[in-house]
Simulated assay, not measured.
Amino acid sequence: MKHLLTRLIALVALTAGAALPTTITATAAHAETAAAVRVMPLGDSITDGFNVPGGYRVDLWQKLVGGGYSIDFVGSMANGPGSLGDRDHEGHSGWTIAQIDSNITNWLRTHNPQTILLHIGTNDMYGGNPGGAPSRLSTLIDRITTQAPEAHLFVATIVPLSFADSTVRTFNAAIRPIVQAKADAGKRVHLVDMYSALTTADLADGVHPNARGYSKMATTWYDALRSVPGSISAP
């Protein structure tokens, strides 16, 4: 019963924002320079930072600044603690791959990101067609690379779900060949193995990471960014 209650709470948190329009919260207070690389954190509540305000973006921002990189997080949303120097992002609680796909063109035109961090698909694991999620992700990737062909797109496998591990593993296994095919076609698409970076012990509610889990995500993103020349530094 306790496990079921925890699961229900997690599901409510994930779907609570699905029917709500995109809103802009507090304006980010940060210094931008002409040389700053525009990075768009893109996804659902895990990008938004459910359970831990700012989520992985807090530690990632600090690592980037500490590493001497000039970064401008971009997006129509903004939230996070004072330790997050730039709070802009495109993380939408409860959203699926298809919902991100329906809005991505306008976001890309508005914010013109040079690098995109995509972690999406968790909410698709609950729907009636999780098996179709890889195809939907492939369509989203194609839309992004067509609209922003010069941008670096980092596509992450999704983090574990405590009660749907088999479904998550199947989805994640399909992501690698999809990304490889896009890269082989000359697209600036890069795979990030986020699933292996976390365990269910790094989840606060069986779905969303706890502070330790978000910190692990930040490290994984940071290492991936540093491995691709030009993704976080001026060309």
Rank of each mutant, 00 (worst) to 15 (best):
D193P: 08
N79V: 10
N79I: 11
A19R: 15
T199Q: 12
A16Y: 06
D59I: 01
A26T: 13
A234L: 10
A204S: 11
S215N: 15
V52T: 14
V65F: 05
F171L: 15
L20F: 04
Y56F: 12
A174M: 06
V168T: 12
E150A: 11
A173W: 08
R169M: 08
A133E: 05
F154Q: 01
Y56A: 00
K187M: 07
H30I: 06
G121V: 02
A156P: 13
L108S: 03
F50T: 10
A197F: 01
N51Q: 09
G54Y: 03
S76M: 07
A26P: 09
E90V: 01
V74A: 11
G94Q: 00
P41I: 07
G91P: 10
T25A: 14
L117W: 10
L14F: 00
A29P: 13
A183F: 04
G230Y: 07
P209R: 00
A35S: 01
V52I: 15
E32H: 14
Y222L: 02
A185I: 10
Q114L: 04
V155P: 00
K2M: 14
M125V: 12
A204Y: 02
A218H: 04
A26L: 14
S70T: 14
Q147N: 03
V58I: 10
N51H: 12
Y69S: 10
H92K: 10
T122L: 03
G54V: 05
P235D: 09
W107Q: 09
R143G: 02
D124G: 07
D142V: 00
T200D: 15
Q114Y: 11
T23L: 05
G132R: 14
T146F: 00
T22L: 01
T199R: 06
D124I: 02
G132T: 13
A78P: 04
I100P: 02
A181R: 15
G131V: 08
S196E: 06
G67A: 06
A26G: 15
G68F: 06
S102K: 03
Y222P: 00
